[in-house]
């Protein structure tokens, strides 16, 4: 027995070193790609941040309130948006808030443009989904810090590794819910589509996607919330935003700053969630087929 244990302990399988070799190989061979991604993401993100910061903050509050009313027709939500954003302005976290919103929007955009097509492909090939499913589980359970290290090596410090880490964490939601939504489209609707001579594309665009839209939108919402929960982690690698004061308050044991920036994150989360919920009247019809 002891001999066996010795054999096991003395011949360590070099998983970690293997991973490092892969990372090194990727760094030296695909530097151009990573640099391209970094540049391609940084320029529009920083541009958007500058653009939004150029708007006077009170006007920005007004625009957000108008969007809230147009999307949801609810005065309660409009009041919440105005008060919440004014509070963030008052706390001096305005610039951080804008950075966070932009970060989330880009992370969500990237996640959706990867996740929804993959979800659609999976719904056509269930074996692919069975293959992907454990990988998606892994992406959401591996502690973020573990993949943050190679991400840093590939993309350097700043916004971009923050977004990449966020996308890794958030992309399973749209993949799963798109797949789920499309596979749950009632057969009756698909057959109705087929019986009127839909091609495969028409079936996707005219029947399956619209029928799955409520579920896909739930995926979008989840994706945004997951991105938001990565704000603090992203700040660790220098992404900026509301995570930065949180990280600073942690380092300085600064309770007031921690509470204030935490409150600001919560306000942004609630606003984004309520903005993107389906309206109650729309939801009434969605359940029936």
């Amino acid at each position: 027995m002891e001999g066996l244990e010795q054999v096991i302990t003395q011949h360590k399988i070099e998983i970690g070193r293997g991973a490092k070799v892969v990372v090194d190989w990727l760094t030296s061979n695909f530097e151009w790609l990573f640099d391209g991604i970094t540049y391609g993401l940084r320029v529009p993100i920083e541009g958007t941040v500058d653009l939004l910061l150029a708007i006077p903050s009170l006007a920005f509050v007004g625009i957000c309130a108008a969007i809230a009313f147009l999307l949801q027709r609810s005065w309660k939500l409009v009041a919440f948006v105005i008060l919440g954003l004014l509070l963030i302005l008052n706390l001096g976290l305005w610039k951080d808030m804008v950075e966070t919103v932009v970060l989330i929007l880009y992370a969500t955009f990237v996640s959706l443009s990867i996740g929804i097509p993959i979800g659609i492909i999976c719904s056509r090939r269930p074996w692919l989904y069975r293959l992907l499913s454990p990988i998606l589980d892994m992406m959401q359970t591996i502690p973020t810090f573990v993949y943050l290290v190679p991400t840093l090596i590939f993309f350097g410090l700043g916004l971009v590794p923050g977004i990449i880490a966020t996308v890794i964490f958030a992309v399973p939601a749209p993949i799963r819910l798109t797949y789920l939504g499309i596979s749950q489209v009632p057969t009756a609707l698909v057959e109705a589509g087929e019986s009127f001579g839909c091609t495969r594309w028409q079936l996707l665009w005219r029947v399956k996607l619209p029928a799955a839209l409520p579920t896909i939108m739930a995926g979008v919402n989840q994706c945004i919330m997951l991105s938001l929960s990565m704000v603090v982690i992203a700040a660790l690698v220098g992404a900026g935003g509301l995570g930065r004061p949180v990280v600073r308050s942690l380092g300085q044991a600064n309770v007031p700053l921690g509470v204030e920036s935490g409150l600001a994150i919560v306000i942004v989360a609630i606003i984004l969630d309520r903005l993107l919920k389906r309206r109650a009247t729309q939801r009434a019809g969605a359940g029936q087929v």
């Binding site: 009756a188 609707l189 057959e191 109705a192 019986s195 009127f196 029947v207 619209p210 029928a211 839209l213 019809g285 969605a286 029936q288 087929v289």
Partner: peptide
């Protein structure tokens, strides 16, 4: 063309 028992109308 076809008519279905459960109507098969697109709810959206």
């Amino acid at each position: 063309s076809m008519v279905f028992q459960q109507f098969g109308l697109m709810p959206w």
